[in-house]
Design a protein around this nucleic acid. Structure first.
Ligand code: FES
Ligand code: FES
Lengths: 166, 166
DNA sequence: CTATACAGTACCAAAACGGTCCGGAATCCT
DNA sequence: AGGATTCCGGACCGTTTTGGTACTGTATAG
C-alpha cells in the first residue's frame, strides 16, 4: 500500500483549489462545497494546515483562508508533513536510538534511511504551482543505476529525459 | 507518515537475512531467533512471502525457506507488494473508476498517479542484493528539473509575508 | 509411525483512521 | 454595544486496520 492518509489527500486537493484561485481568501464553507467534501472535515483539515504554516486565516464575517506564501514555495512534502507528521517510511528511519528492538542486528536500517530521504526529497520538489496543472515534466528514476545488475524487470516509467551521470 | 507496515518491514529484514546467507534453506525458528522476532510473526510473514512467489518452501523434517530466485532479481517493491498489496499512495491512484467521490472534480488525480509511479519505480530498482550491503550508489532526484518554474534554489521557508489579504 | 516443519485460517486486542460535534474567540456590520 | 459570521481548539466515537497469537491440517525425513 504505502498509503498516505485521506487527510493528506484532502489537504492536497484543497490546497490545490485555493492555489488555483489566485491568492484570494476562501471560507471553509465555499471550499467544502467546491471540493465536494463535508464541511466539518474540510474545516479540520484547514485548521491543521494553518497550524502547519501553509495557510493563513482571517476570522470574522469576511474571514477565510489564504495561502501563506507563493504556490511555488509550497511543496507536497510540506502538506503531508503538516497533516500527518514527518515523513518516515519505517518507524526506525526517523528515530535516532532505542526505538527499535532489533536495531543493532538490523542490516537494512541505513538503506531504509536513504530510501526515505529519496522519497522525501522527491515530494519536496513538487510544488503547489505544479499541482495546479497536470505534471508535464518527466518523472525520472530515483536511483543512480551505477549498480544496476540485471534487474531489468519492466514496468519502468518511460524515462525519456534520464540523465546518466557517473 | 507515509508508512510501510511493520509486516513489510519485517519481511525486508528477513529476506535480507536469508539473502545474506547464500541460497541455503533456513527454517522459521532459526530466522526468528536470528532477527529477534517472535516465531509466530516470522512464520506468518514467511508464508506470505511464499505466496508472493519470493521464497520457496520445503516441508518436513529438513524443511525450510529459501530464495525463489537470485537476490538481484528480488526487489523491495516486490516484497512490499507481497505483504501489503499493490503500492498506491492514495486510494484514487490505483482504481480506474468510480471509487472516489470527487473524482471528476479532482485536479490532482493525474499528479498523484505519476508520483505513485515514480515511487514504485524507485522501489522496483532496489534489489535484495543491494540491501545486503549499505547502499553505495547515489540516490538521485526524482523529478526532471526541466520545468522548474521559479522555485529557484529556495527551500526558504521563512519567506515571510506573501501578503494576499485585503 | 513419528517427529519435524510448513500451510491455512481464524481469532483477538490495541491503535489508527475517518468523521462529527460543541463551546469559545476574533472580526465585521449595524 | 450587540448580534452575525467565521475560525479555533478540543473532545468524542464508530469502524477499519494493524500487530500478534493460536490451532488444526499436511507433507516429508528417517
Ligand atoms: S527494523 Fe528497526 S532498525 Fe531495522
Ligand atoms: S481525490 Fe479521488 S480522484 Fe482525486
Amino acid at each position: 500500500m504505502l498509503r498516505v492518509t485521506k487527510l493528506a489527500d484532502y489537504g492536497i486537493v484543497m490546497m490545490t483549489y485555493v492555489a488555483s484561485r489566485g491568492g484570494a481568501t476562501h471560507n471553509a464553507r465555499d471550499i467544502a462545497s467546491e471540493v465536494r467534501l463535508p464541511l466539518p472535515m474540510v474545516s479540520k483539515v484547514l485548521k491543521q494546515l494553518v497550524r502547519g504554516g501553509l495557510l493563513v486565516s482571517q476570522r470574522g464575517t469576511k474571514g477565510g483562508y489564504g495561502l501563506a506564501r507563493r504556490p511555488e514555495q509550497i511543496t507536497v512534502a510540506q502538506i503531508i508533513h503538516a497533516l500527518e507528521g514527518p515523513i518516515a517510511v519505517t518507524q526506525c528511519t526517523d528515530k535516532v536510538r532505542g526505538d527499535c528492538d532489533i536495531e543493532t542486528k538490523c542490516p537494512v536500517r541505513t538503506n531504509w534511511f536513504m530510501i526515505n530521504q529519496a522519497i522525501h526529497g522527491a515530494l519536496e520538489k513538487i510544488t503547489l504551482a505544479e499541482m495546479t496543472q497536470p505534471l508535464r515534466h518527466q518523472l525520472v528514476t530515483l536511483i543512480d543505476p551505477g549498480t544496476r545488475a540485471e534487474a531489468g524487470t519492466g514496468t519502468n516509467l518511460t524515462a525519456g529525459a534520464y540523465e546518466q551521470h557517473g
